[in-house]
């Protein structure tokens, strides 16, 4: 990952020094971010970091106390209607009208977006197929599992072909296959030019789907990074070898910063290049390396580093 921030022209989301408090509680203190069209931007941070509050402001539900927000060039405060046309919002803990069938929920949403009946019906079938809910289309929403409701929430957000997706914990409650499908879906949408802002606690998945990560903590933007694979991120690697003594000796000769981890050894390395060089050295040491892998993904490592002060 590498630090990156820059102006966005035209579309996308631009959040500039936004502040929002609820009485004495400051939910968002000073968050700035840019989410570009054609990219998936991950919003990550610990519980209570202000992610959901920020998303509510983006979704035209809350007014920021200070700072500015634009979505595709429109302000959610001054032009909420224009923003609503353009966004697809999926809240954390998506609620739905339990007495309606899955298909009826989407037909209702289509009517609420002024979509013609024929278009709504066609688009409903399309998004049901996209989120793999076609088989459950005539089931009442109340019988859906949590994961199925999440998928219905995704279908709801996609129905009116928004240019910007704001997804709060979309993978929550999804089984592994659904998570992979969600990742592929979001990558596909981003490739088609959609701006995707997604928050999640499952950093390994964000790592695979996000182009950019914005780390927030205590209502503030801590870091903004691009996910490009070549950027140096200090990470801990776990090494296991047949001959532990030789392994430790080889690490000492290489000047590596290591510590004991039971039968294995954890080594902190500045980046992937350093990791590759050490692996080559260990392979020639005769220690018999059997496992060599990072303990955390890049995004996870960056997140842990950025939020270290919480400890």
């Amino acid at each position: 990952m590498s630090s990156a921030e820059g102006p966005v022209s035209g579309g996308g989301i631009v959040v500039d020094r936004v502040h929002r408090a609820f009485g004495d509680v400051v939910a968002v203190d000073d968050i700035s971010l840019v989410a570009r069209p054609g990219e998936v931007t991950a919003l990550i941070g610990p519980n209570g970091a202000g992610k959901t509050t920020l998303m509510l402001m983006l979704a035209t539900l809350l007014v920021p106390d200070d700072g500015s927000i634009t979505v595709d060039g429109f302000s959610p405060v001054d032009d909420p209607r224009e923003v609503r046309k353009r966004i697809g919002w999926m809240p954390d803990g998506f609620g739905t009208w339990d007495a309606l069938t899955v298909r009826e929920v989407l037909h209702t949403i289509g009517a609420a977006y002024d979509m013609p009946v024929g278009e709504t019906r066609a688009r409903t079938e399309e998004v049901l197929a996209q989120v793999h809910l076609a088989d459950l289309a005539d089931r009442r929403a109340r019988v859906l599992s949590r994961g199925q409701k999440q998928r219905l929430g995704m279908a709801r957000a996609l129905l009116h072909r928004p240019t910007t997706l704001i997804l709060d914990e979309p993978a929550s409650g999804l089984d592994p296959r659904s998570r992979i499908e969600l990742r592929d879906l979001l990558r596909g949408l981003a490739a088609a030019g959609t701006t995707v802002l997604v928050s999640s606690h499952i950093l390994t998945e964000l790592q695979e789907m996000a182009d950019r990560a914005v780390i927030v903590s205590r209502g503030r933007t801590i870091e903004t990074q691009t996910v490009d694979g070549a950027a140096p991120v200090a990470r801990t690697w776990r090494v296991t070898a047949l001959d532990r003594a030789r392994l430790v000796t080889a690490l000492g000769e290489a000047g590596a910063d290591w510590h004991d981890a039971g039968t294995a050894v954890d080594v902190t390395l500045a980046g992937d290049r350093e990791a590759a060089e050490l692996l080559a050295r260990l392979a020639g040491s005769g220690a018999g390396v059997t496992a060599y892998a990072p303990l955390h993904g890049e995004m996870e490592a960056a997140y842990l580093a950025a939020t270290e002060d919480r400890q």
């Binding site: 035209t60 609620g95 339990d98 977006y113």
Partner: peptide
């Protein structure tokens, strides 16, 4: 309470 009010509030309604 059921989390469905905001669903409509973010549409054109």
């Amino acid at each position: 309470e059921h989390g469905v009010l905001a669903t409509l509030q973010t549409t054109l309604v």
